[in-house]
Design a protein around this nucleic acid. Sequence first.
DNA 1: GAAATAAGTAATCGAACGATTACCAACGCA
DNA 2: TGCGTTGGTAATCGTTCGATTACTTATTTC
Lengths: 221, 221
Amino acid sequence: MRAEDRRELILVAATRVFGDYGYVGATTSQVAKAAGVSQPYVVRMFGTKEKLFVEVLSRALDRLLVSFRVVLAEESDVPLGRRFGLAYVNLVSEPGVLLSLMHGFVLGSDPVVGKAARCGFMDVYHFLRNEAGFGPDEVQNFLAGGMMVNTMVGLRMTDDYETDPAVRELLTAAFPEKLDQLRAAAQLQRKREATERETTKRETTKRETTERETTEREAQA
Amino acid sequence: MRAEDRRELILVAATRVFGDYGYVGATTSQVAKAAGVSQPYVVRMFGTKEKLFVEVLSRALDRLLVSFRVVLAEESDVPLGRRFGLAYVNLVSEPGVLLSLMHGFVLGSDPVVGKAARCGFMDVYHFLRNEAGFGPDEVQNFLAGGMMVNTMVGLRMTDDYETDPAVRELLTAAFPEKLDQLRAAAQLQRKREATERETTKRETTKRETTERETTEREAQA
DNA sequence: GAAATAAGTAATCGAACGATTACCAACGCA
DNA sequence: TGCGTTGGTAATCGTTCGATTACTTATTTC
């Protein structure tokens, strides 16, 4: 396979993995397994894990701005803010895009990742302010809604939709439309994570012993 | 010193460290050094790093709800939402409280931490909804603003306040009041991080060599 | 058809980290 | 005074992870 195609595969896989486990929590081995290649190949293709994550952030931002520009190009009677909002929520169908961005947004103290995340955030700001013609308050308000969406997704709040009435109320208020889609995407993700976890367990049989011992010790305490 | 007092010191230090580096990124050694104790002591006092972080989250949430309840008790002509907002921003003066919460909010996929974070978030929701008497939309809107604040703080956006006019515009819109306080807190934090980084570097002289070699290799490429 | 280049892996290494163990010192108290 | 309890530390261990090295296999290209 051509390296360029493989690169895209790895970036998609990495977006998903970084979204699930965060920049520090995700490992290059997880990315490699998800992409169906070896771990050294991932490292050699991107240099370092740090550079890989920066590329993931950049790509995620690109997906975001592209779909916003599509919205901006089409004509509609629906207010622009609401259409952007729907486009934003639609991105949950691309696993890890919003979550990777969110993980970048809390790493401001990191010299490299933090700078990339700040620049990316400001790219969105400039788009809304200049290309979409939003005013400062309008932008701020829109972005706040976006951060709320990110948080709900990051918290896996939909997991408690069935069981907790308050969660249902909150999510209904936060996602007047598109809540079904969000829940569907979340369910897919949960299945994926469960499969992933079982696969990992089956591979490392020794660790199960250790875990059982630990559990027993905690139960005694 | 009594163990109980030492415990509080460690929790304060851990809040700061987890806020800066995240749950996975922070190490028990960093927490220990920040608290002025040995690393094994931190681990033994809280059992595991995971339990320590859950306690940090719980404590941070407590700080938040306590200051909200103080606001709720006092009488004022200013709308409740705005007063809560000010109280929320005031929490930046307690290093790591908001940031630790934010780091918890993106770890929803973690079985233990995720559950704690979701419960914590819903605690705030219930407070606003039941004790403060907010309606669903009002709560959602308020929380969105809060997430926006968290993101701005997490991104260290104030670092670019002087240099980037757009950042200035964004922050002014996001923090109509209290921006000065936010910037002051951020500056304190930056100084702290710089000192910390220099101290760490001075201790590990071998690693400087490795880093320099890496930089040289990158420069060649 | 050989030589070079591209695509990719297995094996392994050094460092960092969380956790454990074993030990030490001070204080209360009978 | 001896002795247990409380509050700690130094040393170390096993694992994990990112990165490196040294190969192998295909596909061009001349």
